[in-house]
């Protein structure tokens, strides 16, 4: 089965930057779960994770004038804000965590690094892929989600083989750069 297309596209980036509240709602639906899982991993506390989610989206909306749709997708930008909020929350919670550690209190929740990281990487790759613009985004989507070969894509889109291959290479290396930019991978 082909995978559903990502629910986020460049037009939502623009709407978000323009102050469309529906775009904020869409951003929340798109990344609040990931924001929460990142916060939960770092803070290991449900209530604290919820507070981070709240703070992240309030900050994102208040400071949206600092968001540049041409530089990154809104979800990737929001993940960046998440890192700051988590760091702030961790500082505030530092004393409490130290106390618990000293008392030998075990938390019942294991950090799930891989899953949260994968969620972020997936979000970055998918939103960045959409931002490549056609036909590169189309070519990349056919290769990624439909798993078509470059010959099938060339045939499907009526493009020269070399053009398709060149788009695949450039598209992939670009996505890799965006992942490394820190929009995705937590340090």
């Amino acid at each position: 089965m082909p995978m559903p297309p990502p629910e986020w596209g460049p037009e939502l980036d623009t709407a978000f930057a323009a102050g469309d509240e529906h775009a904020l709602g869409a951003a929340y639906r798109h990344c609040a779960g990931i924001v929460r899982s990142l916060a939960l991993r770092a803070l290991r506390d449900d209530a604290a994770a919820d507070d981070v989610v709240q703070e992240v989206f309030i900050r994102a909306w208040k400071y949206r004038s600092g968001y540049r749709p041409e530089h990154s997708s809104a979800p990737a930008w929001i993940i960046g804000i998440t890192r700051n909020c988590i760091a702030d929350a961790a500082r505030t919670a530092g004393r409490e965590a130290d106390r618990r550690a000293a008392a030998g209190i075990e938390t019942d929740r294991e950090p799930r690094h891989e899953e949260a990281d994968l969620l972020v990487d997936r979000l970055v790759v998918r939103t960045e892929l959409e931002r490549l613009g056609p036909p590169r985004s189309t070519i990349m989507a056919l290769a990624f989600y439909e798993e078509l070969t470059h010959q099938q894509i060339a045939e499907h889109l009526d493009l020269p083989l070399g053009t398709v291959k060149s788009h695949l290479r450039r598209g992939l290396t670009h996505l890799r750069t965006r992942l490394k930019d820190g929009h995705g991978t937590p340090e």
Partner: peptide, 23 residues
């Protein structure tokens, strides 16, 4: 490069949504 492809193709379980009180 494969890491990028796998991230894009991944279908991890959807993370739990925050409760309605957060929105």
């Amino acid at each position: 490069l494969r890491h990028v492809v796998l991230a894009g193709r991944a279908e991890p379980p959807a993370p739990a949504a925050p409760g309605p009180q957060v929105w």
